[in-house]
């Protein structure tokens, strides 16, 4: 019996497929009642990538009723052959963790607690802060009288957690504000 994911499922171009299991050629016997069903049966399978080290292990995310019910390694990924280390193996728990931050939270100056706010309120207030700071501290010329067009009092740190596409947007956004204090995990 050749056992592999490819043995029973073929990926579609969209990277997602539906699992329908056929239990071919196995005499189920008394274990049938015990193993009454496979939890990922009937789930959607989507290719993702582990968000930890740079091995970039591809993963299969199983989704049922809009919820992630399992994440395991993708055997088609040549580097891992479908394996995952402890961290990758814990991805389902991390995704569905109750500890996730799921709402925009605001902490006022001097306050000892977080307060829920809606996105729009947050974005408006952030934009206002950014503009105030930029207008106040923007440097057009340096001590030598040379044009520098920069904002030194605002920084940005992170993020190797972003996709390439997010990084491109982030870099452009930050430079469009005149930021120079830009750094991320490549240095630490």
């Amino acid at each position: 019996m050749k056992v592999s994911r490819r043995g029973f499922i073929k990926m579609t171009g969209a990277g997602a497929a539906c699992l329908t299991l056929s239990r071919l050629g196995i005499d189920l016997g008394p274990a049938q009642a015990y193993a009454a069903g496979l939890k990922i049966e009937g789930s959607k399978e989507v290719i993702s990538i582990c968000p930890f080290c740079s091995c970039g292990c591809n993963t299969l995310v199983h989704v049922k009723d809009g919820k992630i019910i399992n994440i395991e390694g993708d055997p088609d990924y040549p580097v891992s052959g479908g394996g995952l280390c402890a961290k990758g193996a814990a991805l389902r728990s991390l995704h569905v963790s109750e500890k996730r931050i799921t709402k925009p939270m605001y902490r006022a100056p001097g306050s000892d607690k977080w307060v829920e706010k809606d996105w729009n309120w947050m974005l408006d207030r952030i934009a206002q802060k950014v503009k105030e700071q930029r207008d106040k501290d923007f440097v057009l010329k340096n001590a030598d009288g040379l044009e520098v067009n920069r904002l030194e009092s605002v920084f940005s740190l992170g993020s190797s957690q972003m996709s390439n596409e997010e990084c491109a947007v982030a870099h452009q956004s930050l430079r469009s504000l005149g930021l120079v204090h830009i750094d991320h995990q490549a240095r630490v």
Partner: peptide
Amino acid sequence: CKTEIFLLPSAYRAEKEGTISNS
């Protein structure tokens, strides 16, 4: 601590699409 903090809830990896570049 006088800092005004805006904590934005981020989507986790399987909740977004895009590319990454491995080592």
